[in-house]
Amino acid sequence: MSLIKVTIDNIEVDVEPGTTILNAARQIGGSVVPPAMCYYSKLEGSGGYCRTCL
């Protein structure tokens, strides 16, 4: 599967298709990562509800 190029704050990163913006930011790490309360990677369907990342 081909990777997708994403640019966040001028930092480029290759991610798998279907990756959320939050996870893409976490791949970069550091100060790019927004705060998030409702996302838990092991819980399917979680994320997107608390809106702290916006």
Partner: peptide, 12 residues
């Protein structure tokens, strides 16, 4: 609105 906010989204 404070009373009726459902509590799902933090900003609200």
């Amino acid at each position: 609105y404070h009373h009726e906010s459902c509590g799902q989204c933090s900003p609200c």
